[in-house]
Design a protein around this nucleic acid. Sequence first.
DNA 1: CGGAGTGATTTA
DNA 2: TAAATCACTCCG
Lengths: 218, 218
Amino acid sequence: MEKRRSDCPALPPGWKKEEVIRKSGLSAGKSDVYYYSPTGKKFRSKPQLSRYLGNSVDLACFDFRTGKMMPGKLQKNKQRLRHDQLILAKLFWERRLKGLRSSDVSEEVLRTMELPKGLQSVGLNSNDDTLLSAIASALHMSSAPITGQTSVAAEKNPAIWLNTSQPLCKAFSVTDEQIREQELKVHQARRSLEEALMAHSLARAAENSKEMSEGKAA
Amino acid sequence: MEKRRSDCPALPPGWKKEEVIRKSGLSAGKSDVYYYSPTGKKFRSKPQLSRYLGNSVDLACFDFRTGKMMPGKLQKNKQRLRHDQLILAKLFWERRLKGLRSSDVSEEVLRTMELPKGLQSVGLNSNDDTLLSAIASALHMSSAPITGQTSVAAEKNPAIWLNTSQPLCKAFSVTDEQIREQELKVHQARRSLEEALMAHSLARAAENSKEMSEGKAA
DNA sequence: CGGAGTGATTTA
DNA sequence: TAAATCACTCCG
């Protein structure tokens, strides 16, 4: 058993670190890291450790897995966009991309982008430019941090965040009331989508049974 | 004391189930579930129960805590869509919504939806219908489960999942190669977006200082 | 009832 | 998807 607890220089004297390999199950081979306070209390995650230590120790640069301080790596942007912010930011980018595409830096990439054959065959209308803009913006929103948005206040109230002078949302002016309206519409839209899906499934089923009766089955 | 033992329909006749609430300690309020064989033997866990019953009863779908069979719930079905799947599904929905909007169930909602005034003032081109479709699809993707997608294989390989005959991706035919290509383009698009953002910020700064020098400042 | 060891869910 | 966090099972 690797129950060896080692000292952790990055933490106050007396704290120990331990790494335990999972021996069975779906996650066999992975490991868990634990810390033990001078009094022997066990800690299983950074948030838990952080809550316990409070302001006495700054864990901003502390890497829980390695047990070392990582200067410059002021932790990750845990600040994920909230649901409503995503909607608005997405709108913003889709429009801006379209606005830029024939006269600015985005042009080259977008012009040369193509959808895979398989996707193009989906049919229906809409043009690929719109789709590409949507993809690009959606992807950008999905994981990249937003330049210029670092205010702590942004975490609390989207309305405040949306009124800042940061580039991303400079053009917006959105109230909580508007956000609520938007949420209501969202519920309606979801219902509608479910109905559409149901209709599509039924149509498929009908198609299939028709083919079957026509002797097209394998 | 709640020592009440109740019949358990999911198990053979004569088996009883009992739930005992913990009254103190760190886990106060949590409960332990026990089963009793027709002969009175006590069982404290699913593995223990399983070893005793052997092949006579299939406990694969048996939920030890509730005492009920959970059909289809052969474990983790709450699997969320993966990144690439999100992209493709989003494309799918955006197109499908547009295709439906003038002749199907989605029409009423989409026709009556409006963007908040603040958003409309963002300017640039594009029409609201496209944006609304995009919003609706993005929202639907964000948290609702996808009907018809339950295959275990889907967890492992998006390419397999994308070739199924399920409604959601029926029209798609996407290879790993195509996904890799798409990822490459994504990187390019991201770079491009960053440049665009930078350009926009600079333009804003220039505008502001111009206004300042013209005496328009508050 | 405790808690080590894993599963499940969330985040990046 | 992988990593991190959190929840829960199972057995002492």
